[in-house]
Nucleic acid binder design. Structure first.
Lengths: 139, 139
DNA sequence: GCTTGACCCTCTAGCGACTAGAGGGTGCAT
DNA sequence: ATGCACCCTCTAGTCGCTAGAGGGTCAAGC
């Protein structure tokens, strides 16, 4: 039965067992042969988890979101806060990566494909000076 | 002495010991009191590592780059290849995160800050249907 | 009734790149 | 001699899975 749930949600079997182990997915009933027997509720919950994970929410954030989803009468402001925090983190990551890409581009552009001794990439990585050998001290 | 090297390179002491353990940084000589005593070469090597890591190269890539940096007479084409592979990976990551940011923005925009029962974020995360409670099956 | 094969079970260890903590030793100043 | 900052080793934890060993279960086919 776990295989069915796995293919229905695009999750690996091991991942489902892992989610159960860390208490993200409730432990299902077992069959006579000790197989996990899932119900519609499990499918719904796991789909929620998958979707949130695909959107990059951490396991802890997913846990929080699911907790909030259960308190249906409350304000969803807390949900909004989590989503916005995550959005901000992604914004920062994109900025960091973009800056990095710029630096790398400059590095790569400067490479004239000569010998390593003249390689601007190695030079740029090495600190100051003349990029002596990395493994032996200057004789 | 490890503390000096740490502050000189902006690396944590534990990280330096870790680099030594995994063979990224050569084991230095020891003092009478068994303290690590570093030389200029260690500083140079660790600075190289730091800079490459800051640029997002993996430990394995750093290992490779340092190996190449030592073969000064060879062509630096291999260096260029590693840098370009890394650049491509970053390009992909940025694209992925940008797509994600778009999805999250749509989610967040739709939130009208009502109760959780009406929350579009929760709804969008939940699969199909009416977003019933997450923990109890429908009665 | 017996085998084959696909599925399931638990338990443990591994990945990458550190980080944190326990439990102890060293070196220098007061 | 005592305090304090620093150093040592060793082990285990982080995050989110993934892989493997070593077994059990179940339906189909012969």
């Amino acid at each position: 039965m776990i295989g069915k749930l796995a293919s229905a949600t695009g999750t690996k079997v091991e991942t489902i067992r892992y989610y159960e182990q860390i208490g993200l997915l409730p432990a299902p009933a077992r069959s006579a042969g000790n197989y996990r027997t899932y119900e519609g509720e499990h499918l719904r919950r796991l789909s929620f988890i998958r979707r949130a994970r695909d959107l990059g929410f951490s396991i802890d954030q997913v846990r929080e979101l699911m907790g909030l989803a259960d308190r249906r009468e409350q304000s969803c402001m807390a949900v909004d806060v989590i989503a916005n925090q995550h959005r901000d983190a992604i914004t920062r990551k994109i900025a960091d990566l973009t800056a990095l890409a710029g630096e790398l581009d400059a590095l790569i552009d400067s490479c004239s494909r000569n010998t390593v001794a003249d390689c601007r990439i190695i030079e740029a990585l090495a600190p100051g000076a003349e990029t002596q050998s990395m493994s032996a001290p200057t004789p």
